[in-house]
């Protein structure tokens, strides 16, 4: 809303968990804040609203993933005479993918630090590295998928492979969407600089990229580690 609203100030979030009343005086004069004696000072700041809404979106996205995880858990043994995970998984590739994604999360975090410091160069650099790591991750995943399909172990072979391709592919789709967003983000920061609305989007992008990591950890456990035991 206002260009001055750039830093996250907990005091502007009247509904934060465990809030006291001391912020009322500290935050007086900001936005709609009026002391009413009940601890609620009107609408939260835009930064809080955007971040909060994006959190809710991420939660809903995780619910969608959990449906796919549930389907995979049900179908993990339904190999219909086809190959099981133990025969198919390429361990080096999976470990490398995990490594690339975890490092990309770290560089994504660095981009947030660079943004706080308002450094165009470092922000762009950190985002670029994040993007390259993401591309590397996708390339490895695509190579694994292509290899499986060529072996005759594509998603049409068995219900197990259907759910495997679906849940891993859905994550890959999220990474691809994240890369598109990342590219757009870099262009926007380059053209428009560290404007308030751009900064809010940066927060959301960071949240999104870290959420992909969290989902990958679950995926690694449920699909690959447990799949190995089957």
């Amino acid at each position: 809303m206002s260009a001055t609203d750039t830093s996250f100030d907990r005091a502007t979030d009247p509904y934060r968990v465990g809030h006291g009343r001391e912020w009322l005086s500290a935050g007086a004069g900001r936005g709609y804040v009026h002391a009413t004696g009940h601890g609620e000072g009107g609408p939260a700041s835009k930064r809080v609203i955007v971040g909060y809404g994006f959190w809710i979106f991420l939660l809903s996205d995780i619910v969608m993933f959990s449906a796919f995880f549930a389907a995979h858990a049900v179908l993990q043994t339904a190999t219909a005479g086809g190959p099981s995970g133990r025969e198919l998984f390429n361990w080096w590739s999976i470990v490398l993918q995990t490594f690339l994604l975890l490092v990309s999360s770290f560089t994504c975090g660095l981009s947030a630090v660079a943004t706080e410091a308002r450094s165009q160069l470092w922000t762009q650099l950190a985002l670029l590295v994040t993007g390259l790591l993401g591309v590397g991750f996708l390339a490895l995943e695509g190579r694994d998928f292509a290899g499986m399909v060529l072996q005759g172990a594509g998603p049409d072979r068995s219900a197990f492979l259907s759910s495997l391709f679906a849940v891993v592919g859905l994550h890959g789709l999220h990474v691809s969407a994240g890369l598109l967003w990342l590219g757009t983000m870099m262009a926007q920061i380059f053209v428009k600089g560290f404007r308030a609305d751009i900064l809010r989007r940066m927060v959301c992008f960071n949240l999104f990229w870290h959420a992909l990591d969290i989902i990958w950890v679950a995926l690694f456990t449920i699909v690959y580690l447990i799949g190995l035991g089957r």
């Binding site: 219909a80 998603p155 259907s162 679906a166």
Partner: peptide, 29 residues
């Protein structure tokens, strides 16, 4: 609603790309 989206997406995969989430064949459920 994410569950609905996921479920219908699985059915769409069955119908479009020959997946086997809910088919009679190949271990679908």
């Amino acid at each position: 609603f994410p569950i609905l989206t996921a479920t219908l997406a699985m059915l769409a995969l069955d119908r479009y790309l020959d997946f086997h989430f809910f088919t009679n064949e190949a271990g679908g459920n």
